[in-house]
Write a protein that binds this DNA or RNA. Structure first.
Lengths: 214, 214
DNA sequence: GTCTATACTGTGATAGAC
DNA sequence: GTCTATCACAGTATAGAC
């Protein structure tokens, strides 16, 4: 019996690991299918039965992986904010050229937000009735926001009013683009203007000319 | 027979008028109940059965007044933009003091937009899956937008890029307020700053001091 | 332990009697 | 115009097959 435990435990743990990996893979497939359905028919335009069919399951089986439909949205919410955090990592900050840095960051964020309406709706609006992100999902958005504040602090922007003004301007541009000219560039063209106007407001001097590579 | 026609027609027309008035009153009551339900349970948080009960009818009877649930949203959409048009009429424009004028207009619009989340969602976001305003409802929003452009033209702002920037900033402030600090004033406090920043951008000089009343 | 089959309640919408 | 009855489908839940 002692023997069996010694040999049995590791292999059963391995089996657990394999099972967990498969569960995670299925969860991931479900979430990816949910994004795809949302893109095609809107965030609230699909049913659990459709979603299950998309991944080769029956609807009730989804409850083995998610507690409810809201839990699926919760995972998607989490994924969206995590993706934004990962995008933020690639943002090159040049403290000598804050205007150019903000311009690059604004365009990067704008593209991220407007290339997928449903993701913007899930992350920044309250489209799903009764949906509140779980503490874990909310934490993902907080992490992203803290990264944002840290990066702005590196540029010398620490006034909360300035940070809030920036998020308002950026989300306003993206929101108008998605609501009134989806697929177009009517508000995208204004991103540079908005950055300039914001930089003037916080008192940035003009950037020095970019250094020439020899 | 000729006699009966002569006496009958006017009175039947009167009857029609009365009936139409009662139909309109019922329609109005349904829309008002829909707003109230939306405030309580969200724009997509109520059913036709609930709505019918609220006005003392059965659900199928609603179809005598509206073609579908979307048609009810359409009437609400129309009502929202009409209300904004009426608010715009009260906006006092002082062409000698454009900054103060824009400040007043921005606060007026911000209050209108943020005092009722569901109205903002219906008018400015795409919360209801599959809902597209009818041509008539869309016309109401166009009228409101044309009034806005006319008023801005009176202040000397005609560049489409400036107009779009203004709508982006305002809707961004309201959107952030509703999404991240509902009921608070975190972004409302930034309205004055935003107006200043916009006025600087379009090149308005400082307003002259207000004239003193003797 | 994972899935199927099935059921419960509620949804928007329609048909037809009165 | 208002109702009852009904439809297909939704989210959700559970019982039970394997």
């Amino acid at each position: 019996m002692f023997d069996e435990t010694e040999r049995g435990l590791p292999s059963s743990r391995l089996r657990d690991r394999v099972r967990e990996a498969r569960v995670d893979a299925t969860r991931e497939a479900v979430i990816e299918a949910a994004w795809e359905l949302s893109r095609r028919t809107g965030l609230t335009g699909w049913s659990l039965r459709q979603l299950a069919r998309e991944v080769g399951l029956k609807a009730p089986t989804l409850y083995a992986y998610f507690d409810s439909k809201h839990a699926i949205f919760d995972a998607m919410f989490c994924e969206g904010w995590t993706a934004l955090s990962e995008l933020a990592v690639t943002w090159p900050i040049d403290t000598d050229r804050p205007r150019a840095s903000l311009r690059a960051g604004a365009h990067s964020w704008f593209t991220f937000s407007t290339t997928e309406l449903v993701r913007f709706q899930l992350m920044n609006q309250r489209v799903i009735n009764g949906f509140e992100p779980s503490p874990e999902a909310y934490a993902a958005s907080t992490i992203s926001y803290e990264r944002f504040t840290a990066q702005f602090a590196a540029l010398g922007i620490v006034d909360p009013a300035h940070l809030d003004l920036w998020t308002a301007i950026c989300s306003g541009l993206a929101g108008q683009q998605l609501a009134n000219d989806p697929g177009g560039t009517r508000w995208e063209r204004l991103v540079d203007d908005a950055v300039t106007l914001f930089c003037d407001h916080v008192g940035f001097p003009p950037d020095p000319p970019p250094v020439e590579e020899p």
